[in-house]
């Protein structure tokens, strides 16, 4: 076997990483530990011995179908192993989300996260889900309630189900809360996510208060969530209503980049986000049948809405710039 002759002396310096790169050269990075490896090669050269086996076992389970899903179609393993790392890139790198008040999300038991909704495409929902999964000490899965359109679309519907979300109906919401799950709702619905850019950060009407009703019935706390930064990721300048009607969508956005750049125009802008979880609003001290009282429901809805709106304004004031 031919001996490898070092090309430059500099590469032999003891403070350099001793690993060999894919092209057969010595790594030029500075060694960052007593093992004489740089960070990149430490991870690459000596993965913890189980990592390989874990990946292979995971692949085998997927190939043979030996995994369990719940009645909602939630595939925990797929969500945590495949989807979460992709979403992590977005909330850590793309939107660099600051999470405030994560401790307000209960570590166990049923709770309802109610958030503002914006951004033309529901990226904020995905971020909320995986942000809590990654950032909350209990690594809880937020079960989102989505519109039926999400389940009608190919691929999207499949992924929405597999990551544990379900249709926004009182039956499903109550069932999840009864099972002690953490529920994520966007009471504005399409009115929020598909509102024109000029309306940014103005909370829309909160549906019919159905989500409050469910929380009251399940007697679980409501955590108001305010997301700043999502409004600017795809500014909707106009709505091509005719096109929307043809495709059966609730709106068809015209943004600075879409549809002008084709699919590239769907890439959201890398704005800087702040997500704040407010103090949980307890519902347990209401009467047992308070959920059947429309006025109680209206009052509570207004309170949640107010809380989110105030936090939005406060965090907007503190924002240095949209992108930084």
């Amino acid at each position: 076997m031919a001996e490898v002759i070092p090309i430059t002396r500099e590469e032999d310096r003891p403070d350099r990483c001793r690993a060999v790169t894919a092209t057969g050269r010595r790594c030029r990075n500075r060694a960052s530990g007593p093992d004489g490896l740089c960070g990149v090669h430490r991870r690459r050269e000596s993965p913890p011995p189980d990592a390989v086996e874990e990946v292979l076992a995971f692949l085998r389970r997927r190939l043979t179908g030996e995994y369990d899903i719940d009645a909602f179609g939630f595939d925990r393993e797929l969500t945590e192993t495949v989807l979460a790392p992709i979403a992590r890139f977005f909330h850590e790198r793309w939107w660099r989300i600051d999470w405030i008040g994560m401790e307000n999300v209960p570590a166990e038991g049923p709770a309802l996260l109610a958030s503002n909704h914006a951004g033309t495409l529901p990226w904020d929902a995905i971020m909320l889900k995986f942000g809590v999964l990654d950032g909350h000490p209990a690594h809880r899965h937020v079960r989102l309630l989505a519109a039926d359109l999400a389940f009608r679309l190919p691929f999207i519907g499949e992924l929405a189900r597999k990551s544990g979300n379900t249709l926004a109906t009182a039956e499903d919401a109550f069932r999840l809360l009864e099972a002690g799950e953490l529920l994520g709702v966007f009471p504005e619905g399409f009115k929020g996510v598909g509102k024109p850019f000029s309306q940014r950060y103005k909370l829309q009407r909160f549906g019919r208060g159905g989500f409050i009703e469910v929380a009251l019935r399940a007697r679980c706390p409501i955590v108001p969530v305010s997301i700043v930064g999502s409004e600017e990721i795809m500014p909707m300048l106009a709505n091509a209503k005719t096109v929307a009607r043809v495709f059966g969508f609730p709106y068809f956005p015209i943004t600075p980049t879409f549809p002008w750049l084709g699919p590239l125009g769907l890439i959201p802008f890398p704005t800087k986000w702040t997500v704040e979880f407010g103090e949980p609003i307890a519902t347990a001290d209401h009467a047992e049948d308070a959920w059947q009282d429309p006025l109680t429901v209206f009052e509570l809805t207004d309170r949640v809405r107010d809380e989110i709106q105030q936090t939005l304004y406060r965090n907007l004031l503190h924002r240095r710039s949209v992108f930084l």
Binding site: V20, G36, P49, E53, R60
Partner: peptide
Amino acid sequence: QLEDWERDLAAFLRRKNQERFEQAGRR
């Protein structure tokens, strides 16, 4: 069969890794 392959592949990768690691260490 799948489990066998899995074991073989894991063993192979581990051996390969070790070899590369040692090779790098020798130089």
